[in-house]
């Protein structure tokens, strides 16, 4: 599946479990400017519900979430 969103920064957390994907996403998004898009790749199944929750709480916008071949990809726009 192709997605028409261009990410400013890509963060690959493959093989890591809670809390690391969310902790690393926080550090990564802190380095971006509002409107920039962070792409997060994760393999922890919990991240499927963690990232929507993280986006809701932080105010960053979850543009798209894709599940493909055991990988989860999230596109997050910095608020």
């Amino acid at each position: 599946m192709t997605i028409n969103i261009s990410a400013t920064l890509v963060l690959d957390t493959s093989g890591e479990y809670c809390p690391m994907p969310v902790v690393k996403a926080k550090l990564a998004i802190d380095s971006l400017s509002p409107g920039d898009v962070l792409e997060v790749i994760a393999t922890d199944p919990g991240s499927w519900s963690d990232f929507p929750g993280w986006a809701n709480t932080t105010g960053n916008k979850l543009l798209e979430a894709i599940e493909e071949d055991g990988k989860f990809v999230f596109y997050l726009e910095k608020a």
Binding site: V22, A25, K26, T57, T58
Partner: peptide, 12 residues
């Protein structure tokens, strides 16, 4: 420690 780091990463 996991709850603390996650909550902080969520802006709490």
């Amino acid at each position: 420690l996991i709850l603390a780091t996650t909550a902080a990463a969520m802006g709490m």
